[in-house]
Amino acid sequence: MEDQELIQQLQQGNLEAFDQAYKKYAPTMLTIAYTFMRDKDDAADVVQDCFATLLNKPQLWKSIRDIRWYLMRMVQNQCLGVIRKRDLQQQKDEVFQYYNKSASEDISLPDPYNNVNPQEKENKVVSWLGSLSPQRKRAMELVYQQELSYQEAALKMGISKQSVKTHLRYAKQILKSKMTIIAIAVTSILVFG
């Protein structure tokens, strides 16, 4: 079946045409997805997601003029979206681990503080988080504990994505300054007795 006839059949909701389109274009789409994802299973997931989207949203077929080009573009965009999401999650994890480690272990603090009971350290971190404004605390919880994207957190909080980033930046600065104050206090105790 030629592409134009295939598109017409797809626009009419013909599931056999959908199967033919899948059989005809899936191998090419898998190759494209693999060049981005570098993993066969991830590439297969991307291609299946693209075809599932087309199956669940038949109105998309009405805008398709060149099915091969459209599918190639769709797979490429899906791959880039997955990669961006992974990168964002990795960045969040790194930031969270850094601040979690800094807040609970703080390697730069003097020895007496490092010898403090881990439960006391955790209590201190919890109290520091409690001292944040409600918006900043909520932003930290949504992004770092619930692992939502900035956009998802913004929607839940009813603010812009940039506002979420600003709340997080200020929250991190506050937590860092509190850790610095504790370090100075412990150092002065050591030096001046």
Results as ranks from 00 to 15, higher is better:
88 L>I: 08
117 N>P: 08
104 S>D: 02
136 R>T: 05
127 S>L: 03
103 A>P: 00
101 K>Y: 06
172 K>F: 14
117 N>V: 00
112 P>V: 04
111 D>P: 11
90 Q>K: 10
143 V>R: 11
107 I>A: 14
109 L>I: 02
158 G>I: 03
143 V>Y: 04
148 L>E: 14
167 H>M: 00
137 K>C: 06
106 D>V: 12
154 A>K: 07
159 I>P: 00
101 K>E: 10
143 V>G: 05
164 V>L: 10
158 G>E: 08
159 I>D: 01
99 Y>M: 15
170 Y>K: 13
140 M>A: 04
107 I>P: 07
138 R>L: 10
119 Q>A: 01
102 S>D: 08
171 A>D: 02
91 Q>I: 04
158 G>Q: 13
161 K>I: 02
81 G>N: 14
88 L>Q: 13
133 S>F: 07
149 S>Y: 03
87 D>Q: 13
119 Q>E: 08
166 T>L: 09
168 L>E: 11
85 K>Q: 15
153 A>E: 13
124 K>G: 02
117 N>F: 03
104 S>N: 07
137 K>H: 14
131 S>R: 09
171 A>K: 08
162 Q>G: 15
82 V>Q: 05
108 S>I: 11
142 L>G: 12
161 K>D: 09
104 S>W: 01
103 A>M: 06
120 E>G: 00
110 P>A: 07
136 R>N: 11
82 V>A: 01
164 V>D: 12
173 Q>S: 08
119 Q>F: 09
93 D>V: 05
120 E>R: 02
165 K>R: 13
126 V>F: 13
144 Y>W: 15
152 E>P: 04
138 R>T: 09
103 A>V: 08
131 S>L: 11
97 Q>W: 06
124 K>C: 05
83 I>H: 04
104 S>C: 06
108 S>F: 12
148 L>T: 05
128 W>T: 04
119 Q>W: 05
150 Y>E: 12
142 L>C: 07
130 G>L: 06
113 Y>P: 01
174 I>S: 11
105 E>M: 15
155 L>K: 15
159 I>W: 09
146 Q>W: 04
143 V>P: 05
160 S>E: 11
166 T>W: 05
89 Q>H: 13
106 D>F: 01
124 K>F: 06
92 K>W: 15
150 Y>P: 04
153 A>G: 10
168 L>T: 10
114 N>Y: 00
170 Y>R: 14
153 A>F: 10
172 K>N: 11
94 E>L: 13
155 L>N: 12
106 D>E: 09
125 V>D: 08
147 E>Q: 12
125 V>P: 01
93 D>R: 09
120 E>P: 03
116 V>L: 03
152 E>Y: 00
